[in-house]
Amino acid sequence: MIDTIAAEWDKTRSVRSTRAVLAVVASLILAGVLFMVMANNVWDGLPPERRATFAAIPMERYLLPMIQLCFGVYGTLAIAAEYATGMIGTSMAATPRRGRLLAAKTAVVAAVSLLAGTAAVIAIHLSTRWVVGDRPLPNHTASFTDELPMLLASGLSVALIAVLGLGMATALRSTAVPLVVLSALLFVVPTFTQFLPEAWADEAASMMLPALPGQLASVAREGPNPVSGPFADAGVLSPLAATAVMAGYVVLAVGVASLAISRRDV
């Protein structure tokens, strides 16, 4: 198992797509800083009565769906690229126990996206806070210690999306379909939960991918929360229930992938 993980780690650091994904994520950090500089300029020019109603979403929250999508691409490509080139045959000849191969890929994808995703979220948080300085912007005044649970939960959600991508790509042997589904789960499906009957709408919205990190970190937001869409990061679930829902997504995706990869001819 250690050998297989080491081999997958070698692959992931050799292929160009990993570097491309990390470069895009790095550029998101830069984008966060630039957006914050613009927000500062607006803030500095506002009279005090307008500042009271100024809304500023933290950049690590605003950019989280983009980071998630980047690592969704990373997780998808971790196996879809092998199916596309046919290299999967060599991988399976080297590791005939397919469950082991999938487990090793999952471990590497989860570890890389957890570490890099958390690092990106924290980097955006710290750099934009540095830009804000001592301005009392709404949502930008809590201490780093207070924000840390949300930052870690966000990093964990990045790993979750990456593993979902890997699982779907394994089951479907496709690059495009998992990416469309992931984009839909992140950006489209959450907005439809508001059309559900009222009895289910809150629960359904709470189980959407964008809503999970906030509930995991048990964050109470200042001001009214968006009820749907990629920034609806609040809900009715306890941290434990949110953890269970996240685990459910992983078990479903990896379970289906595992069945598919071990039963099918390559």
Partner: peptide, 16 residues
Amino acid sequence: DAVSPGLTAHDHLRWL
């Protein structure tokens, strides 16, 4: 032909 085109010959044999 079934090798990721982005890998070098050395990369490919190393993971294997």
